[in-house]
């Protein structure tokens, strides 16, 4: 009698992941937003370059600017991660899933493996394409960057890692909250509302808190210039990964101990 293994559950979750429309739609939106908005921003910069403030020109980063669409795409990958688990609760199929896989930690692990693998592949392709299109638009007018340079390559690839981590973050929040709308609200609040709240705090607090915001960590990961108010790229990746791991661990613990 074949038994349930992590490998068999991963294969099952992979079938489930790709056989619902929301997955394909979510990745299509990720593609469109990262590349489309990135190209729009690049074209706008190129159009205004001659009249731009010299200080702004000095601070200009061709890498993170071409990846500006990630600010929008991060919500799409977050929603993919959230739906991967909350749709099971919304439809009740979680009970079918857990009856077939009573060791619940296997369900959480398999879903995470499927989600991270699919998202990292899509995200890395998306960021490289967005980067290349951006440099193409800048060429001749605005300074460009090349992935032949190690810091540039690192920034571009960490852009993909950022998206994949946010997908996993959404999944972890979904595991904890189980309700789609609640999870989406919390996810968007952490990315959008927390920076606004921090903005109204005293300046000295802001300086020490801002760098820990998920969106600031993303900026740090994709920056080639390491602004002083942000973490450097690798520490930023570590901090964001820590958030994601803590969220996932809490979610997995709740999945194992709560009634389905």
């Amino acid at each position: 009698m074949p038994s349930v293994t992590l490998a068999s559950v991963v294969r099952a979750e992979w079938i489930k992941f790709r056989t619902v429309r929301s997955t394909g739609a979510g990745y299509a939106v990720t593609f469109a937003l990262t590349i489309g908005i990135g190209a729009l921003i690049a074209a706008a910069i190129r159009g205004h370059w001659q009249t731009m403030d010299p200080l702004a020109k000095l601070a200009f980063d061709p890498v993170s600017t071409s990846l500006g669409g990630i600010l929008f795409a991060q919500f799409a990958v977050g929603v993919i991660g959230i739906l991967f688990i909350t749709s099971e609760y919304a439809t009740g199929s979680i009970r079918t899933t857990l009856a077939a896989t009573p060791r619940r930690i296997q369900v959480a692990a398999a879903k995470l493996i499927v989600l991270l693998s699919a998202t990292i592949v899509v995200a890395e392709i998306v960021v490289v394409v967005a980067f290349l299109i951006g440099q193409r638009i800048f060429a001749g007018v605005v300074p460009t960057a090349s992935m032949a340079s190690a810091p540039v390559l690192r920034s571009v690839l960490l852009g993909g890692v950022y998206l994949a981590l946010l997908g996993a973050f959404g999944f972890g929040i979904g595991l904890i909250l189980r309700h789609q709308s609640a999870a989406i609200s919390v996810f968007t609040s952490l990315l959008l509302v927390v920076p606004i709240v921090v903005f109204v705090l005293p300046q000295s607090w802001q300086d020490s808190i801002t760098r820990y915001e998920p969106s600031a960590l993303g900026r740090a990961m994709m920056s080639t210039t390491s602004p002083p108010q942000l973490f450097a790229a690798w520490p930023a990746t570590t901090v964001l990964a820590t958030y994601v791991i803590v969220t996932l661990a809490s979610g997995a613990l709740l999945l194992v101990h709560r009634d389905a």
Partner: peptide
Amino acid sequence: LDAGAVHPGR
């Protein structure tokens, strides 16, 4: 247990 406990999009 519950015939409705399936993802309707699949």
